[in-house]
């Protein structure tokens, strides 16, 4: 118990002293997680919208597959992407392995299903009268789609925030594809794992506190947008 309390106090002091190493790790984490969230949103939101809005054969099966992908372990994605970007993989010449780009690719694959399924759910909850109203007021398909996206905006925002929450806390992909290189691919979670291995708890606890604060902020935002959706 003393160890935890001592580590906690030291961690608070470390964070308060604006330690350069600590903030470099946080910055890398935010950069790769932010980039993968943006990419996943660009892919997942339109994809989710089309799945929710259009009727086609195999729609239920596709949604079931997306739901299954929500439970995909990060190490499986790590292995899968590794097979493509390692020296012997088809994208080997691009030299992506152990770069931030590799982490971003892996994390994007991880959260596209999250963004897509939450978007499907947000769009499906929108009253069909919005579509009919837009159509009868003369809107074309694209304008009607924009009306629905606008009405589902809080739900879609919640999808994006949930996806960010998922990647900021993942460790498997960052470790396997990033390699935990100091100052370059070392994220909060990989640094915590390393510090734990070394038996150095101060930095690990400090990073844990920051990660918890970020997660708390993300969840506050998530609930804010969910609340607006239910209004």
């Amino acid at each position: 118990m003393d160890l935890l309390i001592d580590s906690f106090i030291s961690a608070i002091m470390l964070a308060a002293s604006l330690d350069a190493e600590l903030f470099s790790i946080v910055a890398v984490s935010l950069k790769v997680s932010g980039s993968s969230t943006v990419l996943a949103s660009i892919i997942g939101v339109p994809f989710g919208f089309v799945v929710a809005f259009e009727s086609f054969k195999g729609k239920r099966f596709l949604i079931t597959c997306l739901n299954t992908l929500l439970a995909l372990p990060t190490v499986v994605i790590g292995l899968f992407v590794y097979a493509f970007i390692s020296r012997r993989g088809i994208f080997g010449p691009l030299d992506l392995l152990y770069t931030q780009g590799a982490i971003i690719i892996g994390q994007t694959i991880l959260i596209v299903p999250v963004v897509a399924t939450f978007t499907i759910s947000a769009i499906s909850r929108i009253d069909d009268r919005y579509r009919k109203t837009a159509m009868t007021l003369g809107a074309n398909r694209l304008q009607t789609a924009m009306v629905i996206i606008r009405e589902a905006r809080f739900g879609i925002m919640a999808a994006i925030i949930a996806a960010f929450g998922r990647v900021i806390a993942e460790v498997g992909i960052s470790m396997m594809l990033g390699g935990n290189a100091k100052g370059f691919t070392r994220t909060m979670t990989t640094a915590m794992a390393l510090e734990y291995d070394k038996g150095e708890f101060v930095l690990a606890v400090a990073l844990g506190i920051i990660l918890l604060c970020i997660s708390f902020g993300v969840n506050m935002l998530f609930h804010f947008f969910q609340g607006r959706t239910e209004e």
Binding site: R129, K132, T133
Partner: peptide
Amino acid sequence: VVMINQRPILFTTTVYKNIEFGLKV
């Protein structure tokens, strides 16, 4: 041709922008 539903639904914005929608289209 414009149809008004039995229980009309308004877009979640101002009254002005609701009326403006069809004109913008």
